[in-house]
Nucleic acid binder design. Sequence first.
DNA 1: GTTAAAATTGAGTATTCACTCAATACCTTC
DNA 2: GAAGGTATTGAGTGAATACTCAATTTTAAC
Lengths: 207, 207
Amino acid sequence: MPRATLHNRQDSLDRALNLFWQKGFHATSLKDIERTLDMRPGSIYAAFGSKDGLFQEALDCYATRSLREMEIIMASHDSPLDALAAYIRQLGCLRDKEVPSRACMLAKSLLELGEREQAARDKVETLLAGMEARFRQAFADARDAGELVDPERPAHQPERLGRRLQAEVMGLRAYAQREGDSEIVHQLAEDIAQDIEALKVHNTGAH
Amino acid sequence: MPRATLHNRQDSLDRALNLFWQKGFHATSLKDIERTLDMRPGSIYAAFGSKDGLFQEALDCYATRSLREMEIIMASHDSPLDALAAYIRQLGCLRDKEVPSRACMLAKSLLELGEREQAARDKVETLLAGMEARFRQAFADARDAGELVDPERPAHQPERLGRRLQAEVMGLRAYAQREGDSEIVHQLAEDIAQDIEALKVHNTGAH
DNA sequence: GTTAAAATTGAGTATTCACTCAATACCTTC
DNA sequence: GAAGGTATTGAGTGAATACTCAATTTTAAC
């Protein structure tokens, strides 16, 4: 009996994600959304409840996508540390690809959202914690595999390394948002990647 | 002949800075500004031209303040690397102090501003370049003083170390914006600071 | 073909937005 | 005190904001 839905929900979410990712929450107007999704206000609100609700669903999409991309890299490397280094080096190519924003959408939202968007902020916190947990797991895997050069050192605990890596990623991607030569971002990523590789037991010595 | 100005301009700018720093450009309304500065629209526009103009002047204040704070730390250490490490450790206390935002206002603005605020974005780029130049100078000073353990290594060129440090600071401060224990931010800052100290020739070896 | 239910529309809501400007308040100089 | 000029006011501007809802369209089941 129901009328068939005209718009694919996931496709709409992907479009909304790219829009929010590029412009941020506040700078994205409903007019922008109507245009990008090719939907009228009523349809948007019937499907997603509110601008805030749509934003939060877009955040979920982003985090899912990000974790999936990371999982692909992790699966294609035997060594967790090599995988993390490859992950960072891939971020070094941010300037070359066409993306809504070079910055991490979670970091952008973390810095932008205020008390009035508390629900979305909580979601951002949760999703960031999820990413950090995946980083931590990778370092824990490296430790369990005997890859870490000095697992007793406090700074080399998986928890601390995971936090550190998340901070590095947010910093690298924020830096990538600056204007300037693509090569600079590649260098920056390379330097970070080499620091990760330097955590390995039999460091072949980058230099 | 002129009527004496009621409001101190610098004081107004400081108030506006704290407001923009906390809420971001888009989320700050003129009503907020009127309330915070205790000024009526006409006075605000007579003094600063536009919301965008006020924001840009606030950005200048922020950068000046930031550079001054850094200069104090640099001046109170004989070794540039020790000074940078101290600078980072001070950022580790961000959670303990009451500040408009733990995140760097320049980084916040870099991520928030779009094409419609091109002038302000250009200003942010310039001010970030200034901060980076100061970092680079500190590393160059360290190199010239023979402090760097391996000045020939590409990753240890002052240019690259300066960029890296700016990225680390943006990342650390973005991370500090997250909810969570103050101790975690201290740890994170400590780990970064130790990496800076590890660049020194006669590294006394943190653990 | 009729009917029922869901999807979609788009004009319209109240509110907030950044901003303007004629009027006023105030101080300094003479 | 008078005059001149600037700082300040605050009601008011049109445009943009997020959002609503009665009306309409579309489809599937009978």
